[in-house]
Amino acid sequence: MSPLVRLLVSLAISFPLLLLNVVFIIWFERKTLADIYGGIGPKHHGPFGLFQLAFDGMKLIAKEDVIPAKADKMLFIIAPFLVFVPAFMTFAAIPVYNNIYARNFDIGIFYIFGATTLIPVGIILAGWASFNKYSLLGGLRSAAQQISYEVPLLMATLGAVMLSGSLSLVEIVKAQSKVWFIVLQPFAFIFFFIVMLAELNRAPFDMPQAESELVAGYNVEYTGMRFAFFMFGEYAMLLVMSALVTILFLGGWNSPIPALNGLVPGITWFVLKTYLIVFIIIWIRGTFPRLRVDQLMHFSWKVLLPLNLANLLITSAILTVVYL
């Protein structure tokens, strides 16, 4: 296949894949949350309300696009781009199977973290440009939270990188063909999972969007499609992070039972594991109350960071003994 054709094919696959998955995850979240608190969730359009999101999309497109008179117009318009585009960018690096990926970047992990670091910029721009006290507070909180948890996120990933000796996501999964890194690095897995929730602004770390105190956080002033792209970016990141947990710690496309290796295509395992993580994240949202801001910041700097450093030291000590 010529390089150009390959690029176009990978775009033609990953773009619809992103849309479908995001739509499905939003439906899945509403249905699961409804089950948790004893409600019904979407049910009118299509089987089990599966087409609800198509109608929501149509509604959002037909909504009036309001830009507040006093807002900083240029920044207001740029902000949704900075939230959605990085989330879509990361799709270029996610390998679904041995040879099924858009691009196997040598520095896949850096690429993904580099892209996601742009998202707080978009969020703080949205908060600042709206000329609204609530959205400014939401944006600041979100930025403070995301940069505070960025450091433990990178450190938790280091565990997997040290074991596999590569930054390429494909190589990392290949290194787990015998033992998954969740077994070798259980603490790094736990840290990564907690930090991921904070990075995604998900419950119990969802202060930036605390409805009860900040109306809705940084996107109060956004309507119609602009609002839709914030939501889109958020759920795309949820998918990407779940896939990343699968790749880094849950063995990617490797099957949990070695006997099933040839029988079931590896891509099935990848999808199942990713959606298991998505389900757990939604489950946590339905179960845990929200933390306070000070608790959140202290947890990152005074608990997660030292523990991650200790984990790193212990891992390297054990690896030294193993390699020597």
Binding site: L60, I61, D65, F84, V85, A92, A102, Y111, M225
Partner: peptide, 22 residues
């Protein structure tokens, strides 16, 4: 090339959707 193409497609998608909405 992959990175910039993905960025361009992401931006184009938003632009098209906003244009449609307009």
């Amino acid at each position: 090339v992959y990175m910039y193409t993905y960025i361009a497609v992401g931006i184009a998608f938003i632009a098209v959707a906003l244009g449609l909405s307009r």
